[in-house]
């Protein structure tokens, strides 16, 4: 084989490796989505969304309480996670060109890499032990901490994209800087903030590990802050670990609901940012 053929051959081999690797990489995704859809769709009906779980052996029953629980937990998480995260992001974007800003950025990045189960331990020692029981409040705090780094960093990066001329125009009209930020920069960057919030909620929605011992689970309707509460992912975990076929079916259906919601949030966030970059 001449040198040219050899070079061509090596080129072909390496190219096909890349193509095969890519095909190989998307197989699990398709398999997972297909199974979740096929196995889950059979369990979906109206009562699945609004009823309480039924004991083993009885047909039907739903995940209404877990769904409600997830929303309660996310609401608690959002109440403190969104304002703190958004204002931290605004600080980084508007005033953050200093060592303190660097430190905050660094800490936010590190936090996003901390295994989520450890946030569970943290909140357990901080909230659950003093309250003596897992609670919706503790679970919400855990999810809020998880959401923070995503909101901080996305808000910062997307607020930075607001054209400087807008800030200058506001200042030239004699507005104080804080009013420019609140009345001009934030509204202009609203889609960026929404992106960060949606990504963070999507992430928190599917988190299971930190909820295991902060929120626990509870097989009845509950919106009490100081009581245990079910959530969609923890419910899936419990059903999946059970030995009963009916509960596995419920787990698949709940997984379908979870995946659909998470994917919608992610795609919506994606659309928002892409329409934003076109507008620039």
């Amino acid at each position: 084989m001449g040198v040219y053929q050899r070079r061509k051959f090596v080129d072909g081999v390496m190219r096909s490796w890349c193509i095969l690797a890519t095909l190989f990489a998307v197989i699990p995704l398709f398999s997972l989505l297909a199974y979740v859809l096929l196995k889950g769709v059979g369990g979906l009906n109206w009562s699945f969304f609004i009823e309480l779980p039924k004991p083993v052996g009885e047909l039907g029953g739903g995940i209404g309480n877990a769904l409600l629980g997830s929303f309660v937990l996310l609401a608690i998480a959002s109440i403190f996670g969104i304002p703190v995260g958004v204002f931290a992001g605004v600080y980084l974007s508007e005033f953050g060109a200093n060592p303190f800003g660097k430190l905050v950025r660094f800490c936010a990045d590190v936090m996003s890499g901390v295994p989520s189960i450890l946030i569970g331990i943290f909140v357990y020692t901080l909230v659950v032990l003093p309250m003596r029981s897992p609670s919706a409040f503790a679970g919400g705090i855990a999810l809020g901490i998880l959401m923070l780094p995503t909101i901080i960093r996305t808000t910062e990066e997307l607020i930075k994209l607001v054209p400087n001329s807008l800030r200058e125009a506001g200042l030239a009209l004699g507005m104080a800087k804080w009013r420019v930020i609140l009345r001009v920069v934030l509204p202009a960057g609203m889609s960026g903030i929404a992106t960060g919030v949606m990504l963070a909620i999507a992430r928190a929605f599917g988190e299971t590990a930190p909820l295991l011992f902060t929120a626990g689970s509870y097989p009845f309707w509950s919106v009490h802050l100081n009581k245990r509460i079910s959530s969609l992912p923890v419910q899936i975990y419990e059903y999946a670990g059970s030995p009963y076929e009916e509960w596995h079916q419920q787990a698949w259906a709940a997984a379908l609901v979870l995946v659909v919601m998470v994917l919608i949030l992610n795609l919506a966030a994606k659309l928002l940012t892409s329409s934003r970059s076109h507008a620039r």
Partner: peptide, 22 residues
């Protein structure tokens, strides 16, 4: 790229469920 990002967005618990039964 979108597909790869979706792969990252799927919650761990769903991978667990798929892993257990598939």
């Amino acid at each position: 790229s979108l597909l790869v990002e979706l792969l990252a967005a799927i919650p761990s618990i769903v991978y667990g469920l798929w892993g257990m039964f598939v």
